[in-house]
Design a protein around this nucleic acid. Sequence first.
DNA 1: GCAAGATCTGACCATTTGGTCAAAACCCCT
DNA 2: AGGGGTTTTGACCAAATGGTCAGATCTTGC
Lengths: 201, 201
Amino acid sequence: MPRPMTRIQIRNSETILEAALDVFSAHGFRGATLDQIAEVAGLSKPNLLYYFPSKEAIHRTLLTRLLSTWLDPLRDMDAAGDPVAEVMGYMRRKLELSRDYPRESRLFAIEILQGAPRMREAIEGELTALVAEKAKVLQHWMDEGRIARLDPVHLVFSIWALTQHYADFDVQVRAVLGSGHDPYAEAGAFLETLYARLLAP
Amino acid sequence: MPRPMTRIQIRNSETILEAALDVFSAHGFRGATLDQIAEVAGLSKPNLLYYFPSKEAIHRTLLTRLLSTWLDPLRDMDAAGDPVAEVMGYMRRKLELSRDYPRESRLFAIEILQGAPRMREAIEGELTALVAEKAKVLQHWMDEGRIARLDPVHLVFSIWALTQHYADFDVQVRAVLGSGHDPYAEAGAFLETLYARLLAP
DNA sequence: GCAAGATCTGACCATTTGGTCAAAACCCCT
DNA sequence: AGGGGTTTTGACCAAATGGTCAGATCTTGC
């Protein structure tokens, strides 16, 4: 019987999740402290725990919200569209996600890196099922000779790896590029070329 | 005046670093505890601190050792060799590093993800310099028309991203592939194709 | 066999941290 | 204005954690 949230509840829950995203994505679950999150959120620690039952619950809420955002672009890959354009579009949207939501990307990366202790079922269920479905679409396109024949799952991995790299390894990317660069603009051009050559039948 | 290490010192230092690699790569710096490391090493906590002055020192030692191993394959890319073979060889060696030293890969990834708090200078110095040097070599090959014209730094990024993905996101890779797969063998074949098409002049 | 040094440990400490609770402050409706 | 529910907080805990230290135990060169 979930009674409706008051305006204050909505506002504060959001504030807390926003602050928690900041802190968790920068320090990992164990490295983040409730005091830090409270500080960033501008609330007292007991007040956080009035809105969420535990540190773990805050983290879990963030991950759950994240997953659907993360998978949406892949879901949008349309079996009825033009194959090369669809794959390119997916890559583009994923790169934009890295650019616009780097904290989310890092939160996800840290979770997977540490063995996905709080996301195992989601990874093994929802994500795996979606990839399997889209791999079938890609395979179909390959069988029709509309894109080059490749391992479709590893093709998806390559898009994940190449786009998330720019969010997750941001510090390294910027250090190596030096100043006066727009990493995401350059990455967009590079990846466009890469997939154009890779996918050409 | 660093007096030579006794046999026991060498053995125990190694044991500790090995255990610490296990624990740090699985839980991050903050998430790892000295008790855990001591447990894995089969030593008492005060004994760890007899060999290393602090938790931080253990971590720092691991990172320092790691960096040179990590950069060696890139260093080996030979300006005098055959361009395509050299880039392919680098990719191969980097993939083997992911396969054979996944803990090291994850340790490094976690450090960069969190903003490289203990590796900043190494990233900005040694790594950046090496990439700049090798980018020049790649550029030269492109100017000679021996490999396709691409942004050389982003080409290096792509190798990092695509190879490290298999170590860092191992859980996800295995979940999505399901059983009965050899991720690294498949990745090797996929990446061979990818770079063959990308680099062809 | 024995001293001198190296190695190891139990007991301990201060701090940090996730979480609790009773009471205070606040908000909103009539 | 006032009362009932909502929100907020200071004070407090217990457990975990990095680190210390005095002394016990083991090695090693002679």
